[in-house]
């Protein structure tokens, strides 16, 4: 079944006690897009992602991911999505190979599938020849590419990236985004949060949230036009402080 939207959420809300982290958020992310999800620290970005990946139950509202209602079909959703965070969920005391095998096992890949994905990822991440190196000994740039490999070992249709380039140097950041575009070209939908506005301007569409509410949405050019040619940095400041 083909779906026009990789993500469709309606009035999604999450309360923690008296605090509303995500407040009636409605959003649609078309298939195949690089979608930037922006907002200040504490604005509800990570909470939203955790609801979309099924690791947090919404207080109210609906979330459809790849056409499936997350609340009802969480196992199916998890099989079809990938997730990578700023914390790179890798085992530092395991080698590159062991990390890949571990994630291959998590997603139940059969040996042929795993072998093919392993080859692909070693090339993609430029990790060939480093299979038996300890993950702790890799530079941040390599660890980040390995984390991307691990997050995509099961060929997900939709990938969530929560500040994937935080603290990564400018050159490594640029190389990482080259990889993301390669991935996007193969039809994978990317849902990315970032604090770098130059990265935001590479996205097909952007959504800004503030206090868990959607405050702006559009292509980078549309947003700039709506704000009289302001830079994304200026728009971010305006939307985050109001």
């Amino acid at each position: 079944m083909t779906e026009a939207n990789a993500i469709s959420i309606q009035n999604l809300t999450k309360r923690f006690g008296h605090f509303t982290a995500v407040d009636h958020l409605s959003l649609e992310v078309p298939v195949g897009q690089v979608f930037g999800f922006l907002g200040a620290n504490g604005s509800g970005k990570t909470t939203t992602i955790r609801m979309l990946t099924g690791s947090l139950t919404p207080s109210s509202g609906k979330a459809y991911v790849l056409g499936a209602n997350v609340a009802k079909r969480v196992a199916e959703v998890r099989r079809r999505i990938g997730y990578m965070s700023q914390k790179f969920s890798l085992f530092e005391d395991m080698t590159v190979e062991e990390n890949l095998r571990f994630y291959g096992g998590v997603y139940n890949l059969d040996p042929d599938e795993f072998a093919a994905r392993r080859e692909y990822i070693l090339d993609m991440a430029d990790l060939r020849g480093r299979e038996s190196e300890l993950t702790a000994n890799l530079s941040v740039g390599w660890r980040q590419r390995l984390a991307l490999g691990a997050a995509t070992i099961h060929s997900p249709e939709l990938l969530f990236l929560d500040e994937p380039t935080s603290g990564v140097d400018p050159l490594a950041r640029r190389r990482f985004w080259d990889l993301l575009y390669e991935l996007a070209k193969t039809g994978v939908t990317l849902f990315v949060t970032t604090h770098y506005m130059d990265e935001a301007s590479h996205c097909n569409r952007l959504a800004f949230i503030n206090s868990g509410r959607l405050v702006a949405e559009g292509t980078p050019n549309e947003l700039r036009a709506q704000h009289n040619g302001a830079t994304l940095e200026e728009i971010f400041t305006k939307l985050s402080t109001n």
């Binding site: 200040a40 620290n41 935080s166 603290g167 604090h195 971010f236 400041t237 985050s240 402080t241």
Partner: peptide, 11 residues
Amino acid sequence: EPTTGVDPVSR
């Protein structure tokens, strides 16, 4: 790296 992971306004 005191501002790594910090949003543009807080930075």
